[in-house]
Write a protein that binds this DNA or RNA. Structure first.
Ligand SMILES: [Zn+2]
Ligand SMILES: [Zn+2]
Ligand SMILES: [Zn+2]
Ligand SMILES: [Zn+2]
Lengths: 181, 181
DNA sequence: TTATCTATGTTATATCATAACTGGTCAACC
DNA sequence: GGTTGACCAGTTATGATATAACATAGATAA
């Protein structure tokens, strides 16, 4: 069981955090202390927002918290429902705007295959993520995809195309589900 | 000007076609005889359908023809409008079903970033395409992405994830637009 | 303070996609 | 020939996702 330290085991809510388990790419699929995982990412995002001057307002923070509740992607309307229950506005733009902000800041990612959004597990780190979407448990992990992105850039360069943004998404079975079924 | 032979230059509507220019990956972005390009792909798709027993009905054929009119991706409703103008049904399922068929047969691809569909330029060939979407001219090219897919599989395997299907899409500038702007 | 900018909330609408049922065609089978 | 069953296209209706446009409130800054 990797990375199963309890909540109080060690506390690090700063941006300089470097607990080995926290950055493990397969953390999403592995059994782990997700409360810690989420709190850590949230704290890092907050710190980054402060540093960059981006305004982490209550709605925006709440949306990020909601996304961080699990390693699954959520549709905007699901997020909206949660927001409404918390007393925030209950019209689509409320959710879409907060999500847009988070994506712009690099605190969340849009998963186009699912028309959904997931919290970024590596805020602040340069990363061209590939998303691994388990079709069985719906969990989404960010795989380090520098090599993938490099291959894509190369394939594009081959025909003179310059890549600006990319979506790399894979649907399949995560380790846990592969064993189970 | 690569691949600019006129329509009558040489005729090859068979599946065994191997005109060098026809399979060039960057054909979409290069100046080329698109009538030939489209006719060739259509003929190859037809042949494959016959071979596999898939039924290329009038609506389905027409949808493929429509997609083949340019190297851009089209939304289902755009396709539908064209179908209706041709006397086919004008309700969404008509377009969506034909598009679904074409995607299943490998005669078209779904571009998730655009919520749109594009004709496959390499029907019958095994290919895990990466889509290069020019944000300036809206053209979409299929880049050979075996290496990209391999890198993705490797990144996934690293965490024990097995990839079944993938979307690899890049937004950027095509060679022509990069020069212009 | 007053101006200005930004964020949130609201109404309304646009855009994308599918469920469920109806009828038509065609070939296999008796 | 008539019946059956498979498949396709057409329709109605609705669901799901996303944004435009405007109104209000809060923060920032002169
Ligand atoms: Zn976690
Ligand atoms: Zn990320
Ligand atoms: Zn062409
Ligand atoms: Zn293709």
């Amino acid at each position: 069981m990797p990375h199963d330290h309890a909540k109080g085991d060690h506390s690090h809510a700063s941006a300089g955090d470097d607990c080995p388990g926290c950055a493990t790419p397969d953390l999403a699929f592995a059994s782990h202390d997700h409360a810690h995982c989420a709190a850590d990412v949230l704290a890092r995002a907050e710190a980054l927002a402060v540093a960059s001057g981006a305004r982490m307002t209550p709605v925006r923070r709440r949306v990020l918290e909601i996304l961080l509740e699990s390693h699954k992607a959520m549709g905007a309307y699901d997020v909206l429902q949660r927001l409404a229950a918390d007393g925030f506005g209950n019209q689509p733009p409320v959710a879409y705007r907060a999500l847009e902000f988070l994506v712009e800041q690099g605190f969340a990612h849009r998963i186009r295959r699912l028309n959904a959004f997931a919290a970024c597990m590596h805020p602040g780190e340069v990363h061209a993520p590939a998303f691994l979407i388990c079709k069985s448990c719906d969990m989404v992990a960010e795989a380090p995809a520098a090599a993938v992105r490099a291959a894509l850039d190369a394939a594009a360069a081959e025909v003179g195309f310059v890549v600006e943004r990319s979506n790399i998404e894979a649907l399949g079975l995560c380790p846990a589900c592969r064993v189970g079924a």
